[in-house]
Simulated scan of single mutants.
Amino acid sequence: MSNSAAGIFRRLNDAVYWTGAVVACVALVLVSAVIPWAVYTRYVLNSASSWPEPTAVLLTVGITFIGSANCYRQRIHMNMTVGTNLLPPLLRRASLFLSEILMGVIAIFMVIWGLRLVRTTWDNSVDEFPWLSVGITYLPIVVSGAMMLLFVIERLTIGPPPRDGADAHVPVE
């Protein structure tokens, strides 16, 4: 990949990453607003609202899937490195390559089967929100899988994103 193509691809992945971060953060703020409303209506008004709990669950699904894709890109997801750290350098690189390939397979699985799940459930509605398709609630699986696939391709072609301290929440090694 040429330097200019690599730069464009890196900027695309940066944009995907930051869009995902904004979406996950907004969803987290909304969950933080919805839950106190549920507590207020239940314990102060003595008349519980029916929508806050399913709303919080749907937002949490989005936070989890989109957030996990972003964590994967920055290697701040939960992982076990004890075994690979004990390997000689050549085997360590081979195991990292294999793990990227396996993550790519998982990402493709999420996109393909997630789309099938969305399509299958599209005509169903969420009980608490009759206007909301169940298929829409499964879209975070597809989006997360597509994000992870982009990030796997990024690592395999141009390397991981730089850890230069420009991203304040990513530890610099």
Results as ranks from 00 to 15, higher is better:
residue 82 V to Q: 12
residue 88 P to T: 02
residue 93 R to H: 10
residue 81 T to H: 03
residue 110 M to I: 03
residue 123 D to L: 06
residue 91 L to Q: 15
residue 100 E to K: 02
residue 119 R to A: 07
residue 80 M to R: 05
residue 80 M to H: 05
residue 110 M to E: 07
residue 89 P to D: 09
residue 76 I to L: 06
residue 80 M to L: 15
residue 79 N to Q: 15
residue 103 M to T: 13
residue 118 V to A: 05
residue 106 I to D: 02
residue 93 R to C: 01
residue 80 M to F: 15
residue 117 L to G: 13
residue 125 S to L: 03
residue 101 I to Y: 04
residue 77 H to Y: 12
residue 89 P to Y: 09
residue 114 G to F: 05
residue 117 L to T: 15
residue 122 W to D: 14
residue 80 M to W: 14
residue 86 L to W: 14
residue 81 T to C: 01
residue 114 G to R: 01
residue 110 M to W: 12
residue 92 R to Y: 06
residue 120 T to M: 11
residue 99 S to I: 04
residue 93 R to D: 08
residue 86 L to D: 12
residue 80 M to N: 05
residue 114 G to L: 03
residue 122 W to K: 02
residue 125 S to R: 11
residue 105 V to N: 04
residue 123 D to H: 09
residue 82 V to I: 13
residue 82 V to M: 10
residue 121 T to I: 00
residue 79 N to M: 09
residue 111 V to H: 01
residue 91 L to S: 15
residue 92 R to H: 13
residue 104 G to F: 08
residue 96 L to W: 02
residue 123 D to C: 00
residue 105 V to C: 09
residue 91 L to V: 15
residue 75 R to N: 14
residue 76 I to Y: 01
residue 106 I to A: 14
residue 104 G to K: 09
residue 125 S to C: 04
residue 110 M to Q: 06
residue 89 P to K: 05
residue 113 W to A: 06
residue 124 N to L: 04
residue 112 I to P: 01
residue 121 T to L: 13
residue 100 E to C: 06
residue 79 N to R: 14
residue 125 S to H: 15
residue 93 R to I: 01
residue 119 R to K: 12
residue 112 I to A: 10
residue 81 T to W: 01
residue 78 M to Y: 14
residue 122 W to M: 11
residue 116 R to T: 02
residue 77 H to N: 13
residue 98 L to H: 12
residue 87 L to W: 03
residue 81 T to L: 11
residue 83 G to W: 07
residue 117 L to M: 12
residue 122 W to P: 04
residue 116 R to S: 05
residue 105 V to H: 11
residue 83 G to E: 03
residue 83 G to H: 06
residue 125 S to Q: 12
residue 80 M to K: 06
residue 102 L to Q: 09
residue 111 V to F: 06
residue 91 L to T: 10
residue 92 R to V: 01
residue 100 E to G: 04
residue 118 V to I: 11
residue 115 L to Y: 11
residue 119 R to V: 09
residue 101 I to K: 03
residue 108 I to Q: 02
residue 110 M to N: 01
residue 112 I to S: 06
residue 109 F to N: 03
residue 117 L to V: 05
residue 86 L to S: 13
residue 83 G to R: 05
residue 121 T to D: 04
residue 105 V to R: 12
residue 112 I to M: 07
residue 115 L to A: 13
residue 95 S to G: 00
residue 115 L to G: 04
residue 123 D to V: 07
residue 82 V to N: 10
residue 124 N to S: 11
residue 93 R to S: 09
residue 113 W to D: 08
